[in-house]
């Protein structure tokens, strides 16, 4: 056994923790929750060799106590993650993305005047940021590109956080819409409860407020979809069926938000029903049926 081997295990560092006067169970819990290593090893044997446990059985007893405590604590903490935190995360992500793109344009324009091969966009900024600048102007242009890269990385980190936290807030909505769209819907409605209380016709056009008000003042046709356009079920359905697809999806998303808010249980039938409904709508493209423009939709569904 080498020291480095045992050091990577969750049980390592106990002596230091004890010296610091930490409660052994608390410390083990933190190491289970936050530790990382690439390769698993024969932890039971290493722990016995390192004097952490008297025997493999003793090791497993300690492991169980630590994992149960760690999991219980993390469950409690994650359940505190609420819809308001999710809204902050998704808005911060959107701002980071927009700002990164705007700044990337500026950086590219500047870099293009200094270097021959400057490309636009985040990737272009990445290439510029990797350059060795000469002179003050180049230093500033390269530094600006580096800010763009950092901001894009922050955007990605926020997206990962949303992936992790959104399922705890709204499991059914996330399963149906994916973490990002689910978070955006919650943000647009102002919370999970307000979203759960909206009629599905409103959910259908959330994010298309400009088009909706243009329509209400008589200047435009009614919008078929808002932010839910980004969902594969809408975007990848042929244009003449998108209204039906958006209506069906919005109906089920509304139900998903209600189940998430009022019960919190996963409801499999909801996802199954949407899948079947979408299969029916998409089958129209194969049989050549079309929705008559502006006419009544024969299978129009009321709000759920």
């Amino acid at each position: 056994m080498t020291d480095t081997d045992a050091d990577a295990g969750w049980f390592a560092g106990r002596d230091a923790d004890e010296a610091a006067g930490r409660d052994a169970v608390d410390a083990a819990r933190d190491r289970i929750a936050d530790g990382e290593t690439d390769e698993p090893r024969d932890w039971p044997t290493l722990a016995v060799d390192a004097g952490f446990a008297d025997s493999t059985d003793d090791y497993y007893d300690r492991l169980r106590e630590a994992t149960v405590t760690a999991t219980r604590a993390t469950v409690r903490e994650r359940e505190r993650a609420d819809d308001q935190q999710l809204i902050h995360s998704v808005r911060a992500m959107e701002d980071s993305e927009r700002t990164a793109n705007e700044l990337a344009e500026r950086a590219a324009e500047w870099a293009g005047s200094l270097f021959d091969d400057a490309e636009p966009g985040i990737e272009g900024a990445r290439a510029v940021a990797a350059r060795k600048p000469e002179g003050e102007l180049e230093r500033r242009a390269v530094s600006l590109a580096a800010r763009v890269v950092d901001l894009a990385a922050e955007r990605d980190a926020l997206a990962e956080t949303i992936d992790r936290t959104a399922p705890a807030v709204a499991p059914n909505l996330v399963e149906m819409a994916g973490p990002e769209l689910a978070a955006r819907l919650i943000a647009l409605a102002g919370g999970l409860e307000p979203l759960a209380k909206k009629p599905s016709g409103t959910v259908q056009v959330l994010g298309a407020e400009d088009a909706l008000f243009a329509h209400l003042s008589g200047r435009a046709p009614s919008p078929k979809h808002g932010i839910i356009y980004t969902h594969d079920y809408v975007r990848n359905t042929r244009p003449e069926d998108r209204g039906s697809a958006a209506r069906a999806l919005a109906g089920k998303l509304t139900l998903a938000a209600r189940v998430d808010h009022y019960s919190g249980e996963r409801r499999a039938t909801l996802h199954e029903e949407l899948r079947e409904r979408m299969a029916t709508i998409r089958a129209r493209a194969e049989t050549g049926d079309g929705e008559i423009n502006g006419g009544a939709d024969p299978d129009a569904e009321g709000d759920a």
Partner: peptide
């Protein structure tokens, strides 16, 4: 273990080889 199965490095320090 409350962990993401897509990220084994977050539990390889607990799960044995």
């Amino acid at each position: 273990l409350l962990k993401d199965a897509r990220k084994p490095e977050t539990y390889a320090h607990v799960v044995e080889a």
